[in-house]
Amino acid sequence: MTTITIKLVQGDITDQSVDAIVNAANSSLLGGGGVDGAIHRRGGPAILDDCRRLRASHYGKGLPTGRAVATTAGALDAHWVIHTVGPVYSPTEDRSALLASCYRESLRVADELGARTIAFPAVSAGIYGWPVADAARIALHTVRTTPTNVEEARFVLFDQHTYDTFETQLR
């Protein structure tokens, strides 16, 4: 196991040149909005084809929240897309273990694939409503403390507010 280097980037995750790009997917694995839609659009039909194969075999009911699975990266500048389903935020139920599991499971899949560099979005911090500061705290702590052979984890954050919040949590 190596000590992982964490980097923050403001921008579009589909522009990253890494071994694996993590997709904040929905459980259907068939594309959606936000990061999921952008990855499917930019990566092209090969990603959706792989996702359909997964649905037809192991994940007929969809990918469970907190789990991760890999497909081709299609036309993206990566070898793989690791799809993970984040939890929807709830003010009345603690789902932080599920959010942490998204990062741990993504790193586990990356290790199985032999990936050394990985790009993460802020899982659940968009349409799923997770407060950004808490999402950043959970993400950074989990990636820092999960044993992995991944050498570099890049958090690619779409807007300035999310970037600034992750930067504060990283310090």
Results as ranks from 00 to 15, higher is better:
Thr2Met: 08
Pro87Phe: 05
Ala68Cys: 06
Phe155Asp: 00
Ile138Lys: 03
Thr65Glu: 15
Glu151Thr: 14
Tyr103His: 13
Ala135Pro: 03
His79Val: 09
Leu157Glu: 03
Ile82Phe: 00
Thr84Leu: 02
Ala70Ile: 06
Ala70Asp: 10
Ala75Ser: 03
Leu54Cys: 06
Leu8Ile: 08
Cys51Leu: 09
Ile118Ala: 05
Leu29Asn: 11
Glu152Thr: 15
Val18Pro: 12
Phe158Asp: 09
Ala97Val: 13
Asp19Trp: 03
Gly114Cys: 13
Lys7Gln: 14
Ala78His: 01
Pro91Ile: 08
Glu93Asn: 11
Thr2Asp: 08
Leu54Arg: 06
Arg108Trp: 13
Thr92Gly: 09
Ile47Arg: 08
Ala125Thr: 03
Gly33Thr: 06
Ser96Tyr: 02
Ala136Arg: 01
Arg137Ser: 11
Arg108Val: 15
Ser106Glu: 03
Ile4Arg: 13
Phe166Ser: 12
Ala110Pro: 03
Ala97Ile: 09
Asn26Trp: 03
Gly126Lys: 09
Thr5Gly: 02
His79Trp: 10
Ala46Arg: 07
Ile6Tyr: 02
Asp94Pro: 05
Gly60Asn: 13
Ser96Asp: 12
Phe166Gly: 02
Leu29Ser: 08
Gly114Thr: 05
Thr165Ser: 11
Tyr103Glu: 01
Val22Met: 00
Pro64Asp: 08
Pro45Trp: 01
Arg53Gly: 02
Ala110Glu: 00
Gly114Leu: 10
Asp94Thr: 08
Leu8Val: 11
Gly114Phe: 04
Tyr128Lys: 06
Asp12Gln: 04
Ala24Asn: 04
Asp111Met: 15
Ser96Cys: 04
Ala56Asp: 00
Leu170Met: 14
Leu170Trp: 01
Cys51Phe: 09
Arg116Tyr: 05
Val22His: 00
Ser17Met: 10
His58Cys: 12
Gln160Glu: 13
Arg154Val: 13
Arg95Glu: 09
Thr14Gln: 14
Ala133Asn: 04
Pro91Thr: 13
Asp134Trp: 00
Pro91Glu: 03
Thr3Ile: 14
Trp130Gly: 00
Gly60Glu: 15
Ile21Leu: 09
Arg67Ala: 12
Gly34Arg: 09
Leu8Lys: 10
Gly44Met: 01
Val88Asp: 08
Ser106Lys: 02
Asp134Lys: 08
Thr2Glu: 13
Gln10Glu: 01
Glu167Leu: 14
Arg52Gln: 07
Val18Gln: 07
Ala73Glu: 09
Trp80Asn: 14
Leu63Gly: 02
Glu112Tyr: 00
Gly66His: 07
Arg52Asn: 13
Thr148Arg: 04
Ile118Pro: 05
Thr65Pro: 13
Arg137Gln: 01
Gln10Cys: 03
Asp77Asn: 15
Val109Thr: 06
Leu99Ile: 10
Glu112Leu: 11
Gly60Phe: 11
Glu152Asn: 07
His83Gln: 07
Ala24Pro: 01
Glu151Ser: 12
Pro121Ser: 14
Ile6Pro: 00
Arg154Ile: 14
Tyr59Thr: 08
Phe155Tyr: 12
Ala56Val: 09
Lys61Val: 03
Ser90Gly: 07
Ala119Thr: 04
Arg55Gly: 04
Asp12Trp: 06
Thr65Gly: 04
Ala115Ser: 15
Asn26His: 06
Val22Ser: 10
Ala136Tyr: 05
Ile39Ala: 10
Val109Lys: 13
Ala139Phe: 01
Thr14Tyr: 06
